[in-house]
C-alpha cells in the first residue's frame, strides 16, 4: 500500500522545481468535461494527457477541465494555450491523438493541424 511517508519524500524532491506552472508562462491544456464531452470519451483523453505530461516530466504544463465549449458534436475537445501564441482547438480527440498532441505540439512546438477544428469543418 502506498504510504503518506512516501509522498513526503516525493514532496521534498519536487519542492522548488514545480512552481513554474503557477506562472503566467505555463502552457495550459483544457479539456471539455461537460455531459457532452464525457459521453464522447473526454475522460480517457484527460487521463492520456495527464499521463503523458507526467511521464515526460513536463513541469511547465497544466492540464485543466472546463464545461461545455459549445460544439458538442465535435467532442472530445482539447484546447492548447501556449503563452504568446494563438489558442489551438483540437476536436474529436482520442487517447492516441492526445499523446500525439503532447509530443508534437507541446514538446516539438508543431501544431497537429489535421486534428484541429479548422480541419474538421
Amino acid at each position: 500500500m502506498k504510504s503518506l511517508a512516501e509522498l513526503e519524500a516525493i514532496r521534498n524532491k519536487a519542492k522548488g522545481s514545480v512552481n513554474l506552472r503557477k506562472d503566467d508562462n505555463a502552457v495550459r491544456i483544457v479539456v471539455g468535461m461537460a455531459t457532452c464531452g464525457i459521453a464522447a470519451g473526454a475522460k480517457p483523453v484527460m487521463t492520456a494527457l495527464m499521463e503523458e505530461v507526467a511521464k515526460r516530466n513536463l513541469e511547465n504544463v497544466a492540464v485543466t477541465q472546463t464545461g461545455c465549449i459549445g460544439v458538442c458534436r465535435l467532442e472530445p475537445i482539447v484546447e492548447v494555450m501556449v503563452p504568446g501564441e494563438e489558442k489551438v482547438t483540437y476536436v474529436k480527440v482520442d487517447p492516441k491523438k492526445a499523446a500525439e498532441i503532447i509530443s508534437e505540439h507541446i514538446v516539438n512546438g508543431r501544431v497537429v493541424t489535421k486534428y484541429t477544428i479548422g480541419a474538421a469543418q
Binding site: M1, L7, I10, A14, K15, K55, N57, V63
Partner: peptide, 26 residues
C-alpha cells in the same frame, strides 16, 4: 490530508501525479 503532506507542491507535479494514480488504483 494529501494536501497537508504536499504543502504547495501541486497534485499535477509529475511524480505526485503518478503516486496519486497508483494510490487510487491500489
Amino acid at each position: 490530508e494529501i494536501r497537508n503532506v504536499l504543502g504547495d507542491v501541486p497534485f499535477q507535479a509529475p511524480e505526485v501525479y503518478l503516486w496519486l494514480s497508483d494510490f487510487l488504483k491500489e
